[in-house]
């Protein structure tokens, strides 16, 4: 799973914590600049709320991806699993009458079960069939999206219960915090705790750092990796349910780049693609840096094509500055 020389690992691990801090400062600086330039538009409660809400579904998926990447794995199937889970959830809610909290509950369980099922399949392919994660999850990505299209004939389904859309999708806790944000924060908090403080998280990082060492010490590596992929699938299923609540539609064609967005956020957040080094807080920052940039640029009136150029440049610059810092430290 890992072939990184020890020397590079030293820097990666040492910098994981400080990188998180550094990126948090970068994010704060971005927010500061945009707020200074456009205090009323950018800093308004409405805008803060829309940015948070807009990032919440991606964040749920990115949290799952953090665990997978921490084991030195990868999951390309999240966007497709999101779509599939949403589609079967709508079908089930329809079967339960298409409205009422009973139907919503059934849809919720279905979405989670569907996501978890795809995650388990990913995990089995990786651990039992020994198919490389990149290929295994590329395959399930096609299968999940294809099956969603088979079920729907390629047409987006409506008919999402109104209760779900008006509460989870649009409602707010105490009239201020959108439920979507509450859901994402809850998932993130539990995951951050699980990764940093529990045996589950410790196994995840140990396997990513040196799976052979874990195996020799009696850790059931395959079983744990299976659980991690199942978790990522479960969270994609949850994201699928949130997406239904938000858009009142299965948005079949709209998730082709979710996997890359999630992986970008995780890596930008300081998690190593080689495994063993990961923080959920980093991932949160990694989700918000592109989201804040995008929002700020639109408000500032940056031309659309230049927005893309600027966002790409800022992402590369963020990682480049981080590299410069690492090199400077290495010379001491």
């Amino acid at each position: 799973m890992t072939a990184l020389p020890l020397a590079s690992r030293v820097q990666l691990r040492r910098l994981a914590v400080s990188s998180t801090l550094y990126l948090a400062v970068a994010l704060a600086a971005l927010i500061g600049v945009f707020t200074a330039l456009e205090p009323e538009a950018f800093g308004s409660a409405y805008n803060v709320r829309t940015v948070l809400t807009g990032a919440s579904i991606l964040l749920v998926m990115a949290v799952g991806a953090t665990f997978v990447i921490a084991t030195a794995g990868i999951d390309l199937s999240v966007g497709a699993v999101l779509v599939f889970s949403g589609v079967v959830a709508v079908k089930v809610m329809d079967a339960f009458g298409g409205s009422g909290w009973g139907a919503v509950g059934a849809g919720f369980v279905t979405a989670l079960a569907a996501g978890c099922g795809w995650g388990l399949l990913n995990g089995l392919l990786v651990t039992r069939a020994r198919v490389p994660a990149l290929i295994a999850t590329l395959g399930t990505m096609g299968m999940a999206l294809g099956l969603a299209q088979v079920i729907t004939g390629g047409n987006d389904l409506g008919g999402v219960p109104g209760e779900l859309v008006t509460t989870v999708g649009q409602g707010r806790l105490f009239g201020t915090v959108p439920w979507l944000v509450v859901a994402a924060v809850a998932v993130t908090a539990v995951a951050a705790f699980a990764l940093a403080k529990t045996r589950f998280g410790r196994y995840t990082l140990t396997i990513g750092s040196n799976h052979e060492a874990a195996r020799r010490s009696g850790v059931r590596v395959d079983r744990h990796v299976l659980k991690v992929y199942a978790l990522a699938g479960l969270l994609a299923g949850f994201a699928g349910f949130l997406s239904l609540a938000r858009f009142a539609s299965t948005t079949i064609a709209g998730h082709g780049t979710d996997n890359l967005q999630a992986i970008t956020a995780v890596v930008l957040g300081g998690t190593s693609l080689f495994g063993g080094v990961a923080t959920v807080i980093g991932t949160v920052i990694g989700v918000f840096i592109p989201a804040v940039l995008q929002n700020g640029f639109v408000i500032l009136g940056v031309k659309p094509f230049w927005q893309q150029v600027a966002i790409g440049a800022v992402l590369v610059a963020a990682v480049y500055l981080d590299q410069l810092r690492r090199r400077a430290r290495q010379q001491h």
Binding site: V10, R13, R202, T206, S209, N210, E212, A213, G218, G276
Partner: peptide, 24 residues
């Protein structure tokens, strides 16, 4: 003590001591 040491390089010595035997 294996020749390759079987340590998880990204984890602390304490975490390495307790791989598979974590205290809860």
């Amino acid at each position: 003590v294996y020749q390759d040491l079987a340590l998880a390089p990204d984890l602390s010595p304490a975490a390495n001591f307790f791989i598979g035997r974590e205290l809860l």
